[in-house]
Computed example of a mutant assay.
Amino acid sequence: MDNDKRLVWTVEEVAERLGIGLSTAYEVVNAGTIRARQINRKWLIPKAALSEYLDGRDNPARVLSMDEVAEALGVHRNTVSAMLNEGTIRAVRAGRTWKIPLTALEEYLAGRDNPPAKEETYEE
């Protein structure tokens, strides 16, 4: 039983509770997959936010796998991999897998996430 009266956990505590590495925990927090607040230089995760994440009640921050994005776009998985490596679609690498926020895919499809194409200049 958790006798801790605090309302928040640190990233280190969350990583320990989830059995994941610290760098993976920071990636998840930075991606917005788990709600967190940064106070000065310290990230704090509300206990309720972790419960919501584990229960699947955190859908605003829903993330997709590379295969789900490939299916949604109707392209091959390798195409999605290339897009992620180029930064065409915003994503976070969590361990060996990519996590693509649903909002990032929506931004890409709406054209809001695309940087303008570089203009080519020709010298005569």
Rank of each mutant, 00 (worst) to 15 (best):
K42N: 12
R37D: 10
S51V: 15
D55F: 10
R62G: 02
P60D: 04
Q38G: 03
L73F: 05
N40S: 14
G74M: 08
N78K: 14
V75E: 03
I45Y: 08
Y53M: 08
I45W: 09
A61I: 00
G56P: 04
R37V: 14
A48W: 07
A72W: 00
N40R: 12
R41G: 13
L54E: 15
N78H: 13
L73P: 03
H76E: 12
L73A: 06
K42W: 09
E71F: 06
H76M: 06
V80W: 04
L44C: 04
L73S: 04
K42L: 15
L64A: 06
P60R: 00
E68D: 10
K42V: 15
G74F: 06
K42A: 15
V80Q: 01
M66P: 00
G74T: 08
V75H: 02
L54D: 13
V63I: 08
R57L: 14
L50E: 03
T79C: 10
P46Y: 05
I39R: 08
E71A: 12
E71R: 10
R57A: 11
A48F: 09
D55C: 10
N59G: 08
R57I: 05
G56C: 07
I45P: 06
A61Y: 03
A49N: 01
R41L: 13
L64K: 02
D67R: 04
R62Q: 10
A70E: 04
G56Q: 04
L54H: 09
L54M: 15
Q38P: 01
T79I: 12
L54I: 11
L50V: 14
R62I: 05
I39C: 08
E68Q: 12
L73C: 05
G74A: 08
E52G: 10
V63W: 03
R37T: 14
G74C: 10
A49G: 04
R62E: 10
T79Y: 09
V63M: 07
Y53L: 07
K42F: 11
I39N: 05
A72H: 06
P60E: 00
V75A: 03
R62D: 07
K47F: 06
K42T: 15
N40A: 15
Q38L: 10
Y53P: 07
P60T: 03
Q38V: 14
N78A: 15
L50T: 11
P46F: 10
V69M: 05
L64F: 09
W43C: 03
L54A: 13
S51E: 13
D67V: 06
N78Y: 12
V80D: 00
I45D: 06
A49Y: 05
